[in-house]
């Protein structure tokens, strides 16, 4: 189900902007520049405006695509409130109607690099956030085991392992459990499966679809893989080459079927080709610009 790509101007007519659907994440004219006024000034993203609404009982899954270095991660880190991306140079980033002032557990993040804490067991990694919030060990470990099970790890054998005893895919499962245990309303994923082999990647995509249905959070998913974005997303954002602007917003079919099946269907391939063309056009525009 490919809708005609919308241009930046048309994006204010959001089809989800109905009463009752509160905005979860709002970007209003957001730009981010580094080293302003110096010769090495660099603009990561420019004038990005979008609104993601809460669909009751069903968070939205947004795939973010674009050429390399177009500021995809900048958008995620602005939502997370992490420095030095936060604060934006101009514009406002709001989550649940309030401007972002810094990082918080309501916005979970999963990184591409394995960021498991090496000195903590799987269980201690998963319960890190609860520990920081002062939840007693009995309760947090019970909940931790529940989430270890939810992400498809074996509670009995894996909970007391240290991260170096796990494969890359298992480490990312730990990272996902560690984030979801806090029940964040927004989940930010910065190429979480980028370093995994293709088969593990498909399994992780299916896992994510299953988990996301349960947690009902809004997910921002940055990836280089068009297939991944089109498969996982309800909607795909395409950014222009640096400085990144939001140039296309494509509604795609939600992931009803396992990744390995759905990604083989013709309709799915057509959507992927369409999005591929959009990105290629952006890349071409950048090359034309620089010449």
């Amino acid at each position: 189900m490919v809708e005609p790509p919308m241009t930046g101007e048309a994006m204010s007519d959001d089809p989800d902007a109905q009463p009752g659907n509160k905005p979860v994440v709002e970007f209003a004219g957001v730009s981010k520049s580094y080293n302003a006024g110096q010769t090495n000034e660099f603009t990561a993203i420019k004038d990005v405006t979008f609104t993601v609404h809460d669909k009751p009982g069903h968070g939205e899954f947004v795939g973010v695509l674009g050429p390399s270095g177009c500021g995809k991660s900048t958008i995620l880190k602005l939502i997370a409130g992490l420095e030095p991306q936060h604060p934006p140079t101009t514009g406002t980033v709001s989550v649940h109607g309030r401007p972002v002032t810094g990082p918080g557990a309501d916005r979970g993040m999963v990184f591409q690099d394995y960021t498991s804490f090496d000195h903590r067991t799987v269980l201690d990694n998963v319960t890190f956030g609860l520990e920081c919030h002062g939840v007693s060990r009995k309760i947090r470990e019970e909940l931790g085991r529940h989430w270890i099970d939810q992400v498809g790890l074996n509670v009995a054998t894996d909970q007391h392992k240290f991260p170096h005893e796990l494969s890359g895919g298992m480490r990312q499962r730990v990272a996902i459990a560690r984030s979801l245990i806090l029940r964040p309303k927004v989940i930010l994923m910065d190429e979480p499966f980028g370093a995994l082999d293709p088969q593990t990647r498909l399994n992780m995509q299916d896992l994510l679809v299953k988990l996301w249905r349960n947690v009902e959070a809004t997910v921002f998913f940055v990836t280089h893989s068009v297939e991944e974005a089109v498969y996982l997303g309800d909607r795909v954002y395409v950014l222009s080459a640096s400085p990144g602007r939001l140039v296309h917003q494509v509604d795609v079919e939600p992931p009803h079927r396992p990744a390995a099946l759905m990604q083989r269907e013709e309709q799915f391939r057509d959507t992927v080709y369409h999005v591929n063309d959009l990105i290629a056009a952006e890349e071409a525009a950048r090359v034309a610009d620089s010449e």
């Binding site: 880190k77 997370a80 992490l82 810094g102 990082p103 918080g104 557990a105 916005r107 979970g108 993040m109 990184f111 690099d113 960021t115 804490f117 090496d118 000195h119 890190f128 956030g129 520990e131 920081c132 919030h133 990272a175 560690r178 984030s179 806090l182 930010l188």
Partner: peptide, 27 residues
């Protein structure tokens, strides 16, 4: 210690003291 560990701790709701004692120092 990589910045990504600190960022991870922050997005899991740790404060600065916890980020130092539970993440930076052990790592």
């Amino acid at each position: 210690v990589g910045q990504q560990y600190l960022d991870t701790a922050y997005t899991l709701g740790s404060n600065r003291w916890q980020a130092i004692t539970r993440v930076l120092v052990p790592l």
